Simulated scan of single mutants.
Amino acid sequence: MLGRAYTIFDTAIGRCGIAWGPSGIVGVQLPEAREIETRRRLFQLYPEARETRPAPNVETAIEGIVALLRGETADFSEVALDMGGIHVFDQRVYQITQRIPRGETLTYNEIAARLGASGAVRSVAQAVARNPFVVIVPCHRVLETGGYTDKMSLHGGLISKRRLLSIEGTGSSARQTLLDVLLPVAPPRLSG
């Protein structure tokens, strides 16, 4: 496969999308209100991508996303991400963000400090907002000081950080948004 491709897949919160190229995953799209809107967003972001069956690396990513969105632990350590075209500063932010364990969060300030750039809080927030690898690079675990959960990146669809943290067992129901009430988290599926 020479160009970019994408697929749509089912999760506990709706139909998500994922796009990839020869060097790995280029983006994840969480569900919009309707599947057609999720597809439209993928087309806007990756107009050259064609729908096809996922490559093995992509299947691993999909399995992890599905598990995480069911409230289970997911391991994305073997998933190749295509960081071509992503600013080096953003890559460094994503590397730190990938190491935030499930059930924990960091603030933009804490990430800036770990980068040795404590004055770069706004740049960290902008990098998180540009994250094309939502869930794989768990930007929902990066909050403003005080634990405020702001909206997701462009790839977050209608899903809020608060909702993703709630699925992981980290969020507080006392601070739900209207979307969290209208789109309640599906209960985890029991296996077996």
Rank of each mutant, 00 (worst) to 15 (best):
I136Y: 10
A120S: 15
S118W: 06
E110P: 08
T105V: 15
A117T: 03
V142I: 14
A129I: 03
A113K: 08
Q126W: 12
A117E: 14
Q126M: 13
R130S: 01
C139H: 13
G119H: 14
T105H: 07
A129N: 13
A127I: 03
V135N: 00
V134E: 12
V137S: 13
V121A: 11
L106E: 14
P138W: 00
P132A: 00
V137R: 08
I111K: 01
R130H: 00
P132N: 04
N131R: 09
A113V: 07
A112S: 02
S123L: 09
V137K: 09
S123I: 03
R114K: 15
T107K: 12
C139V: 10
N131C: 11
R141E: 05
A129F: 12
G119M: 07
E110H: 11
A117F: 03
R141S: 04
Y108E: 10
A117L: 09
E104R: 15
C139Y: 12
Q126H: 12
E104I: 02
H140R: 06
L115M: 08
P132Q: 00
Q126S: 13
H140P: 05
R122D: 10
R130C: 02
T107A: 11
A117R: 14
P132F: 01
H140S: 10
R130V: 02
H140A: 05
H140D: 07
V124I: 08
V128Q: 06
A125S: 13
L106A: 14
G116D: 08
R130L: 01
R141K: 06
F133E: 03
I136S: 09
A113Q: 08
T105I: 12
L115P: 04
A127R: 04
V128S: 04
R122F: 09
R141H: 05
G119E: 13
V137I: 14
A112F: 01
P132Y: 01
G116M: 07
R122E: 13
A112V: 00
L106V: 11
V142S: 04
V128C: 08
N109I: 14
V134T: 13
C139E: 15
R114I: 03
A112R: 03
N131M: 07
A125D: 05
T107P: 08
A127L: 05
R122Q: 14
E104C: 12
R130M: 06
